[in-house]
Design a protein around this nucleic acid. Structure first.
Lengths: 196, 196
DNA sequence: GCGCTACTATGACCAGTGTCATAAGCGGCG
DNA sequence: CGCCGCTTATGACACTGGTCATAGTAGCGC
């Protein structure tokens, strides 16, 4: 905590993502974001002249980049890299968080999609971009693991879909069961696609 | 439209589900629900003394029952009933709606989970119950189609997870691709589990 | 008609929102 | 010092939200 923390602007984007994860976009107030980021309220209009929508969009964008970057780290952490292992690692991040901190938070991109896809076109586009920023490196990783090029994109979409849905079920039921079920049932399918 | 429509109470629950589907829970106002249901505003506190939370919970509950009942109809509509065919029918309901009316609406249960899972315990429970009301008949249908008992529950969870996630992606990207991808990739897995 | 219940109508309240206007602090540089 | 940007501070505005209180109406058994 005492290490050199990032600037106020970055902190506010991060805090926005955290609060959106928990309460959704509409229920997250700007003042609340500033307070959570320990940032002055006056900075909001200075750094985000586009208002709440800009802040939300940047939070979504940030989440997409974050998810994309994690793919490489997951891969590096696997003993023997397989598609099923990668998927298991992705799901484990959520299982672990839920086991440790409770089921308070979901995926911010999902929250933004649910809350804004109809009402805010720019936010919907940001969410789509976030999913792309997540899927592209995932598909690339799958091809590296031996999945044929034509199949990798599809399987990446499937993995993200299933993971997002499992997160949703897990939160609703307050049980990580859906996450482990997804890994168990989808694993063989993923590995079968990687065999030459 | 001119047929004998249901009572105001039922209409309000239905309208609430529709509006939540589009804009999320927090962004849906009570007055808006009454207007959409063409119901008097004063009836809100009369039929739903528990306030907004009660209305939302009943809408979620209604959606769960609806999804559960559709399973039987989907099964009846299949030429040769298979798990993959059932899943395709479930996804097609969304693809068709999106193709016909645009990507304005998602799943109300998902919206309620994202918006209320952390803040309203009762709503979270209602969402969990809705998923159960959806999964139970789905698992029963799978066993009827030849899926071993131990596997049916898992596959039902997987189907719902993947479908919910694909709905999310489809809405964000305004493209039914994720839905068709889910059906294509998951179909063989489902049918393989039904073989004796 | 009476009385009772079910339902509707309407206005007020207060907490909360996003946004804006204005002004102050505050570094560094000339 | 004096000026001047980048930030921060603060209060006001207009508005909407859910909720409550109160009054009014409709229908029906008696």
């Amino acid at each position: 905590m005492t290490e050199a923390r990032p600037g106020p602007r970055e902190r506010m984007v991060f805090s926005a993502a955290q609060l959106i994860r928990r309460h959704g976009v509409a229920a997250t107030g700007m003042r609340e974001v500033a307070a959570h980021a320990d940032a002055p309220r006056g900075s909001l209009q200075h750094y985000f002249p586009g208002g709440k929508e800009q802040l939300v969009n940047e939070a979504v964008q940030w989440a997409g980049r974050y998810a994309g970057k994690r793919i490489a780290r997951f891969l590096a952490g696997l003993d023997e890299p397989t598609p099923s292992g990668l998927f298991a690692a992705m799901a484990a991040q959520w299982s672990d968080e839920y086991a440790a901190d409770g089921f308070a938070a979901g995926c911010p991109v999902a929250a933004a999609t649910v809350d804004c896809a109809t009402s805010a076109e720019a936010t919907r586009r940001a969410a789509a971009a976030a999913f792309t920023a997540w899927r592209a490196p995932l598909a690339a990783a799958l091809t590296d693991l031996g999945v044929p090029a034509g199949r990798a994109e599809s399987l990446a979409t499937l993995m993200i879909s299933t993971l997002e849905g499992a997160i949703l079920l897990a939160r609703a039921e307050q049980d990580t069961g859906p996450l482990t079920t997804a890994v168990r049932e989808l694993g063989p399918l993923l590995d079968a696609a990687a065999r030459p």
